[in-house]
Design a protein around this nucleic acid. Structure first.
Lengths: 145, 145
DNA sequence: AGACTAACCTACCAAATACGTAGACTTTAC
DNA sequence: GTAAAGTCTACGTATTTGGTAGGTTAGTCT
């Protein structure tokens, strides 16, 4: 399961996608619009900035904005920064790998199964991006207002 | 990530698969062979028995054994009993569904993405079973001893 | 019947993690 | 220089995780 932190992160990001190329957005605006606890949101945005997905400006007229085009930021990358591993076992994780004690990876059935799950999951999460977060919203629908 | 409890569960189950149709297996034997803390293992096995995957016998000659053929028990079912939801969001979980506040599921990009991940994951986990846990082990390899 | 064996049950506990808050500090615009 | 905004350090509380302790109940064997 994604943590609440990760869910907040995606909600916040979807707002930044909406406002992409319209200048910095206040933390407080995101917090209000998306109903995310302000101080918690601060931490989350900061973390994503340090990871290079967001940029910020201080002082009046400041705020947060996406560091690059939303279609260039895969969902998988955000999850890794905010929540850590995507795989179901450390021994099949690509970015957070840890060797299994008590299990020879060459002959471990569970390892094989979970490697398959990882591949299937990443096939989706690496190819979906932040732009996809707001697809299907009325705003992006040609029939919508 | 699967919890340690779930990983222990699968290790224990793989031993019970090995001994399938050879009568009850002592908790203490599983604990020793698979290096799982005894009392913790007790809880795990009990939970799986209550869920119907295992049966037990008390007294001398007692122990735990699989309630049915290992090929009939999907990996997904075990995870749900031991760890709970498999999906990455409550709002896309089949067995632990919870409505999303602050997100209209009909127009939520994240929802759609995670529903896709769920489908891909379950496609594997519902079709892999306990027998697959021990496939590829030398015991089941025609070239093995 | 009595001794033994092994699962079952209730309760507890420590450490880690998740979730969130407080308040002072720094940088920037005007 | 002052107000606006993000940044930093620290803390706090609740829940989950990963166990442990010890007694109880139900079968088995002699």
């Amino acid at each position: 399961m994604l943590s609440k932190k990760a869910q907040y992160a995606f909600r916040a990001l979807s707002h930044l996608v909406d406002k992409f190329d319209q200048g910095p957005v206040l933390i407080s605006e995101i917090s209000k619009k998306k109903k995310i606890p302000l101080k918690f949101l601060e931490n989350i945005l900061l973390e994503m900035r340090k990871a290079g997905f967001l940029e910020s400006k201080k002082g009046k007229g400041g705020g947060y904005y996406l560091a690059k085009n939303p279609s260039k930021i895969p969902v998988a990358a955000i999850i890794r920064v905010v929540d850590g591993p995507i795989a179901m076992l450390p021994c099949v994780s690509l970015y957070f790998y840890e060797r299994c004690k008590n299990c020879d990876e060459k002959h471990c059935g569970l390892h094989d199964i979970m490697a398959g799950v990882r591949d299937a999951t990443l096939h989706i999460l690496e190819n979906k991006n932040l732009q996809d977060l707001v697809r299907n919203s009325s705003k992006n629908n040609i029939f919508g207002k």
